[in-house]
């Protein structure tokens, strides 16, 4: 994978001239899970994104971080087509919303899974029905097979099988997140978007959830894009990190970002919480010394 080498080689010039981390990658934009060029988002007079570029490789785990109000959620909503940007060109799985009619765009959306911050499970449906909802809409599976696949997804995310008959209001916060993840995985998406997946979980639950995402990502070969504030998650599972800063985005591995002299980056990656999360040691479960070398990308089944 040639593109990977390009990213890593960026380290060589770090520290010289002005520090610059590119957020685009070489290669055909259609091959990326997400590819954004020149995104501008503004609300009234407030400009949230100004000429933002971002490429997300297939099969990688990308963490998006940024201070409050830097437009992390807006970026996610824009990628998913829930927010129409003022300017810019967004490709999701090689397709551009502007070029597609409603039905084709829905099919592209069906190839993505989203876990919203509080789960966003349909409260009037049981967990199993929630998981089956996207299947009913986008596939021709019969009821038996759908029930089995829903049960499979429930087990995959580590919920007990009897959770399928429960309503979201009967679940704890952690179980809701797992159920939400199961629904996001319902149609075996090519890319899943997670909005603060570990927010509101206790440290043990958060660690479990991180490991769950990582192991699902490896076995299913899915691309993961997660907005997070959880430094432990960043260290534990993200291949690359995208930082929203000054209305643009800077992407790099943990090592690269830690060398960025920007004051916010210094505060973020060298603050007491970052040290507590073990940043700088770059000790990662996959750790063979090349964070973000993208070897997981090879595992993609398609």
């Amino acid at each position: 994978m040639a593109m990977v080498d390009e990213v890593v080689s960026g380290e060589a010039v770090a520290g010289e001239q002005e520090f610059k981390l590119g957020s685009t990658l070489p290669g055909d934009r259609k091959d990326f899970a997400v590819s954004i060029r020149g995104l501008v988002n503004r609300f009234g007079k407030q400009v949230v994104h100004d000429g933002l570029d971002l490429d997300i490789k297939r099969g990688e785990v990308l963490g998006i971080v940024g201070g409050s109000g830097t437009g992390k959620s807006v970026l996610l909503r824009t990628i998913l087509g829930l927010n129409v940007p003022a300017e810019g060109d967004i490709m999701l799985l090689g397709e551009n919303q502007r070029d597609l009619d409603e039905g084709d765009w829905r099919r592209v959306q069906a190839r993505c899974g989203v876990l919203y911050q509080s789960g966003a499970l349909f409260s009037s449906l049981t967990v199993a029905e929630n998981i089956e909802a996207p299947m009913r809409e986008h596939s021709d599976l019969d009821d038996d097979l759908m029930d089995q696949l829903a049960a499979l997804k429930i087990q995959l995310v580590g919920l007990p099988l009897n959770a399928g008959d429960k309503y979201p209001s009967q679940l704890s916060g952690g179980m809701k997140k797992r159920a939400g993840l199961a629904r996001a995985l319902s149609l075996d998406p090519e890319v899943i978007f997670l909005d603060e997946p570990t927010a509101g979980l206790d440290p043990v639950g958060a660690t479990d959830f991180d490991q769950l995402i990582l192991s699902l990502q490896r076995s299913l070969g899915v691309t993961v894009v997660m907005v997070t504030h959880d430094l432990d998650s960043l260290v534990a599972i993200c291949d690359r990190i995208a930082v929203l800063l000054d209305k643009k985005i800077r992407v790099g591995t943990m090592d690269e970002l830690m060398r960025d002299p920007h004051p916010w980056m210094q505060a973020y990656f060298h603050g007491p919480r970052a040290r507590a999360a073990g940043m700088g040691k770059t000790e990662r479960p996959s750790g063979d010394g090349h964070p973000g070398d993208g070897h997981r990308g090879d595992g993609h089944g398609a």
């Binding site: 089995q148 499979l152 192991s215």
Partner: peptide, 22 residues
């Protein structure tokens, strides 16, 4: 071999043949 992980994972999570019918 690329699909091995997936097969492994699904085998572990495989539900009993029929989900319990109320």
């Amino acid at each position: 071999p690329k699909m091995n992980d997936l097969m492994q994972r699904v085998t572990e999570a495989a539900p009993s043949d029929k989900p319990p019918v109320p």
